[in-house]
Nucleic acid binder design. Structure first.
Length: 114
DNA sequence: GTGGTGACGTATA
DNA sequence: GTATACGCCACCA
């Protein structure tokens, strides 16, 4: 069964983000690639921007860009909220950047391949 | 229906 | 490592 519908694009992104383990993060490109929308990474970021409309809300704070920068911290309403949430999960953040980003990086393909 | 915008990524120099 | 250019296409006015 293949759910064809652009409206489901957001839902697809949300579902992947919900599967991100605590203390881990992933990048927009990784999610986009998992959706088969490699190159359309912007759409993933756009989906996150509207993540607050999703129900249940997705841990958007676990999604950062490819260099581990909290590019969307502004969308949380507070520039420090996103960093605070990450640090609360054990992710060290300095200067709006994730320390050892590569170490805490989580590949969505890991779960999809299950 | 048309156009602008964007929580990005890749390519190139 | 930085700087610039382009593509990608769903959402909103």
């Amino acid at each position: 069964m293949e759910i064809k519908g652009t409206a489901n694009f957001f839902e697809r992104v949300y579902e992947i983000v919900r599967q991100i383990p605590e203390g881990r993060v992933t990048s927009y490109g990784a999610i986009a690639r998992s959706l088969g929308a490699a190159g359309s990474s912007r759409m993933v970021g756009y989906a996150m921007r509207a993540a607050h409309r999703a129900n249940p809300p997705v841990p958007a704070h676990r999604v950062v860009n490819r260099i581990g920068v909290l590019s969307g911290k502004m969308a949380f309403g507070s520039s420090t909220l996103m960093q605070q949430l990450l640090e609360n999960e054990g992710v060290e953040v300095v200067d709006d950047r994730i320390v050892n980003f590569r170490a805490v990086f989580w590949d969505p393909q890991e779960v999809i391949s299950l």
